[in-house]
Measured scan of single mutants.
Amino acid sequence: QVALSRTQVCGILREELFQGDAFHQSDTHIFIIMGASGDLAKKKIYPTIWWLFRDGLLPENTFIVGYARSRLTVADIRKQSEPFFKATPEEKLKLEDFFARNSYVAGQYDDAASYQRLNSHMNALHLGSQANRLFYLALPPTVYEAVTKNIHESCMSQIGWNRIIVEKPFGRDLQSSDRLSNHISSLFREDQIYRIDHYLGKEMVQNLMVLRFANRIFGPIWNRDNIACVILTFKEPFGTEGRGGYFDEFGIIRDVMQNHLLQMLCLVAMEKPASTNSDDVRDEKVKVLKCISEVQANNVVLGQYVGNPDGEGEATKGYLDDPTVPRGSTTATFAAVVLYVENERWDGVPFILRCGKALNERKAEVRLQFHDVAGDIFHQQCKRNELVIRVQPNEAVYTKMMTKKPGMFFNPEESELDLTYGNRYKNVKLPDAYERLILDVFCGSQMHFVRSDELREAWRIFTPLLHQIELEKPKPIPYIYGSRGPTEADELMKRVGFQYEGTYKWVNPHKL
């Protein structure tokens, strides 16, 4: 086992960053958080920038500027975001240094004079007029057009580079997404736009490419001749908990499936790229999406959770019991969808996408189930092999396979070949997804960000279904809070070829 401390991990990262040409360590950078008073800024962006600063992973002359409508001070920003920093008493001095680099400007999102004030403020910072500028839009999409237009007109660096990070949702359907994309691309070049999907920053999602293309053993079996089906799962054990009003506007397909799960599907299904260059990788992902037809209604199961009468606390409440959810809402909190990649490698292999709230566990994984062994000599005792990439929690890679049961006879039983990170790298604290992705933006690497043509294809696949749901308002199937979801989803999976045995229990190697 390799035991690495946080300091050692960050030392390795620093070495990698400083050796590259793309990370300008000594240049002045300004990180501007648009929507600095909001939840995302408070819980994710400010803490992430602090962790990067604490670990010495930001360029040395980096300033952080918050911008929002609320009249706040840096002290206010500190008060609301610091509880999420997880700072230790030993880091007190470092924390003071961090907040000394912070400033805040209040202004409207659609007022040109406010942006001119913001620009004057940035120019007044040390070497601010020639600094590289990175704008993070932690804002609702309704203000994107006004904000990007004003940034472009008043706040661009004339000497350094300018980059803009856009948070999902990128529209509600193909038409609104196209409108937003066309607007942003009329102001910024594609190499300046970073559409963030934080799932692409997760260690195991990034590991998929290495697993596939750096190991000879997987190449020959990664196709329709050997793989019976692919299941991509995202499960949350909690409901909307008072935030249903926002969720109800989008629903589970827009929230998770059309982005996170579809991105994971691309990494499983794509061909080997010409290189690890950002556009070479994204070219292959677009090719996969172009091979997927629009979702067919007979390959869809929609569910909505109801309270568990035997549960406790939140578990007793259904989705419609959330006071922020519109009365009688038919918005799905669970969806199972089957897609097919219609190309030579994957023809006929079902890709089953499942996601839901208020389920029995927290889990995100990719599961490849292989065909049955031909010419069975073990009297149907063999179960199908599976390769599982567990994204969260407890990152893991393992192969479910058959071995001989101890004893006199040739009785096979299920076991696993474990390729888990935790076994080799004991207690290594890896940077989280937002840390990686923000560092990628500083480096100018777009590999783990969504390109406009990729986004367009993703919406093309799901828009007809979303429009049909909005028009017909089908009643989702009720499922109990804390269950596996509607049984109809299991029946759909069985119908397209997935075999669920229920006889195997994964042993978490992190707890051995």
Rank of each mutant, 00 (worst) to 15 (best):
Arg254Tyr: 02
Arg254Ile: 03
Asp255Lys: 03
Asp255Phe: 03
Asp255Pro: 02
Val256Gln: 02
Val256Asp: 02
Met257Ser: 10
Met257Trp: 00
Met257Tyr: 06
Met257Gly: 08
Gln258Val: 07
Gln258Arg: 02
Gln258His: 02
His260Trp: 03
His260Gln: 00
Leu261Glu: 01
Leu261Tyr: 07
Leu261Met: 11
Leu262Pro: 04
Leu262Arg: 02
Leu262Phe: 10
Leu262Thr: 14
Leu262Asp: 01
Gln263Arg: 00
Gln263Val: 01
Gln263Phe: 00
Met264Glu: 00
Met264Tyr: 00
Met264His: 02
Leu267Val: 08
Leu267Ala: 07
Val268Gln: 03
Ala269Gly: 13
Ala269Val: 06
Glu271Asn: 07
Pro273Ser: 05
Ala274Phe: 11
Ala274Ser: 15
Ser275Asn: 08
Ser275Val: 05
Ser275Ala: 06
Thr276Lys: 13
Thr276Trp: 02
Thr276Ala: 15
Ser278Met: 03
Asp279Glu: 11
Asp279Thr: 09
Asp279Val: 12
Asp280Cys: 13
Val281Met: 11
Val281Trp: 01
Arg282Asn: 02
Arg282Lys: 04
Glu284Leu: 08
Glu284Asp: 08
Val286Cys: 09
Val288Trp: 01
Leu289Asp: 02
Leu289Asn: 00
Leu289Ser: 07
Lys290Arg: 14
Lys290Met: 07
Cys291Thr: 15
Cys291Asp: 11
Ser293Gln: 14
Gln296Glu: 13
Asn298Gly: 14
Asn299Ile: 04
Val300Pro: 06
Val301Glu: 09
Leu302Phe: 12
Leu302Glu: 04
Leu302Lys: 04
Leu302Val: 10
Gly303Ile: 04
Gln304Ala: 07
Val306Met: 15
Val306Phe: 14
Val306Asp: 13
Val306Gly: 11
Gly307His: 08
Gly307Ile: 00
Pro309Lys: 13
Asp310Trp: 12
Asp310Val: 11
Asp310Met: 11
Gly311Val: 10
Gly313Trp: 10
Glu314Phe: 12
Glu314Gln: 11
Glu314Thr: 12
Ala315Asp: 13
Thr316Asn: 11
Lys317Gln: 14
Gly318Phe: 00
Tyr319Trp: 01
Tyr319Asn: 04
Tyr319Thr: 02
Leu320Trp: 08
Leu320Gln: 09
Asp321Cys: 09
Asp321Ala: 11
Pro323Thr: 15
Pro323Tyr: 12
Thr324Asn: 08
Thr324Ser: 14
Thr324Gly: 15
Val325Gly: 04
Val325Ser: 07
Arg327Thr: 12
Arg327Gln: 14
Arg327Ser: 14
Arg327His: 14
Gly328Leu: 10
Gly328Phe: 13
Ser329Cys: 07
Ser329Asn: 04
Thr331Cys: 10
Ala332His: 06
Ala332Ser: 12
Thr333Ala: 00
Phe334Asn: 03
Phe334Tyr: 12
Phe334Gln: 07
Ala335Val: 09
Ala335Thr: 08
Ala336Met: 11
Val337Leu: 12
Val337Arg: 00
Val337Ser: 13
Val337Ala: 13
Val337Asn: 10
Val338Met: 12
Leu339Gly: 06
Val341Tyr: 01
Val341Asp: 00
Val341Leu: 12
Val341Gly: 02
Val341Gln: 04
Glu342Cys: 13
Glu342Ala: 12
Asn343Phe: 06
Glu344Ala: 11
Arg345Gln: 11
Arg345Ser: 13
Arg345Tyr: 09
Asp347Gln: 14
Gly348Arg: 11
Gly348Asn: 09
Gly348Glu: 05
Gly348Pro: 01
Val349Trp: 02
Val349Cys: 06
Phe351Leu: 05
Leu353Cys: 07
Leu353Arg: 03
Leu353Met: 10
Leu353His: 03
Arg354Gln: 03
Cys355Phe: 01
Gly356Ala: 03
Gly356Asp: 01
Gly356Arg: 02
Lys357Thr: 00
Lys357Tyr: 02
Ala358Val: 00
Ala358Trp: 02
Leu359Met: 14
Leu359His: 07
Arg362Asp: 00
Val366Lys: 02
Arg367Asn: 02
Arg367Phe: 04
Arg367His: 02
Arg367Met: 00
Arg367Ile: 04
Leu368Phe: 06
Leu368Met: 12
Leu368Lys: 04
Leu368Asp: 02
Gln369Phe: 01
Phe370Ser: 04
Phe370Leu: 11
His371Tyr: 07
His371Val: 08
Asp372Phe: 01
Asp372Glu: 14
Val373Gly: 06
Val373Cys: 10
Val373Glu: 13
Ala374Asn: 13
Gly375Asn: 14
Gly375Lys: 10
Gly375Thr: 15
Asp376Leu: 07
Asp376Gln: 10
Asp376Ala: 11
Ile377Lys: 07
Ile377Ser: 08
His379Thr: 14
His379Phe: 11
Gln380Arg: 13
Gln381Trp: 07
Cys382Arg: 11
Lys383Pro: 14
Arg384Trp: 04
Glu386Pro: 02
Leu387Gly: 01
Val388Lys: 03
Ile389Thr: 05
Arg390Tyr: 05
Arg390Asp: 03
Val391Leu: 06
Gln392His: 07
Pro393Thr: 06
Pro393Gly: 12
Ala396Thr: 11
Thr399Cys: 10
Lys400Cys: 01
Lys400Val: 06
Met401Trp: 11
Met401Ala: 13
Lys404Leu: 05
Met408Gln: 09
Met408Tyr: 10
Phe409Ala: 15
Asn411Gly: 13
Asn411Leu: 06
Asn411Asp: 14
Pro412Trp: 08
Pro412Leu: 10
Glu413Gln: 14
Glu413Asp: 15
Glu414Ile: 14
Ser415His: 04
Asp418Trp: 04
Asp418Ser: 08
Leu419Gly: 06
Thr420Val: 08
Tyr421Trp: 09
Tyr421Val: 07
Tyr421Thr: 03
Tyr421Glu: 00
Tyr421Ile: 12
Tyr421Ala: 00
Asn423Gln: 13
Asn423Leu: 09
Lys426Cys: 11
Lys426Glu: 10
Asn427Val: 06
Val428Met: 12
Lys429Phe: 10
Lys429Asn: 14
Lys429Ala: 15
Lys429His: 14
Leu430Lys: 12
Pro431Ile: 07
Pro431Asp: 14
Pro431Arg: 06
Glu435Phe: 03
Leu437Pro: 03
Leu437Cys: 10
Ile438Met: 11
Ile438Asn: 00
Ile438Leu: 12
Leu439Tyr: 09
Phe442Thr: 13
Cys443Tyr: 13
Cys443Arg: 10
Ser445Arg: 13
Gln446Trp: 02
Gln446Glu: 00
Gln446Met: 10
Met447Thr: 08
Met447Ile: 12
Phe449Val: 04
Val450Ala: 10
Arg451His: 04
Arg451Phe: 07
Ser452Tyr: 05
Asp453Gly: 00
Leu455Gln: 03
Arg456His: 08
Glu457Gln: 13
Glu457Trp: 05
Glu457Asn: 08
Ala458His: 06
Trp459Glu: 02
Arg460Trp: 04
Thr463Ile: 01
Pro464Phe: 09
Leu466Gly: 08
His467Val: 09
Gln468Trp: 12
Glu470Asn: 14
Glu470Cys: 10
Leu471Thr: 15
Leu471Pro: 06
Glu472Trp: 11
Lys473Asn: 13
Lys473Arg: 15
Pro474His: 15
Pro474Ser: 14
Lys475Trp: 11
Lys475Glu: 14
Ile477Ala: 12
Tyr479Met: 00
Tyr479Gln: 02
Tyr481Gly: 07
Arg484Met: 00
Gly485Pro: 00
Gly485Ile: 00
Pro486Phe: 03
Glu488Pro: 11
Ala489Pro: 02
Asp490Gln: 08
Asp490Met: 11
Asp490Pro: 02
Leu492Ala: 06
Leu492Lys: 06
Leu492Asn: 00
Leu492Met: 15
Met493Asn: 10
Met493Gly: 15
Met493Gln: 15
Arg495Ser: 13
Arg495Met: 12
Arg495Leu: 11
Val496Lys: 12
Val496Tyr: 13
Gln499Asp: 12
Gln499Gly: 13
Gln499Ile: 13
Gln499Met: 15
Tyr500Ala: 06
Glu501Trp: 09
Glu501Phe: 10
Glu501Asp: 14
Glu501Cys: 10
Gly502Glu: 14
Tyr504Cys: 05
Tyr504His: 06
Tyr504Ser: 06
Tyr504Leu: 05
Tyr504Gln: 06
Tyr504Glu: 04
Lys505Ala: 15
Lys505Glu: 14
Lys505Pro: 07
Val507Glu: 15
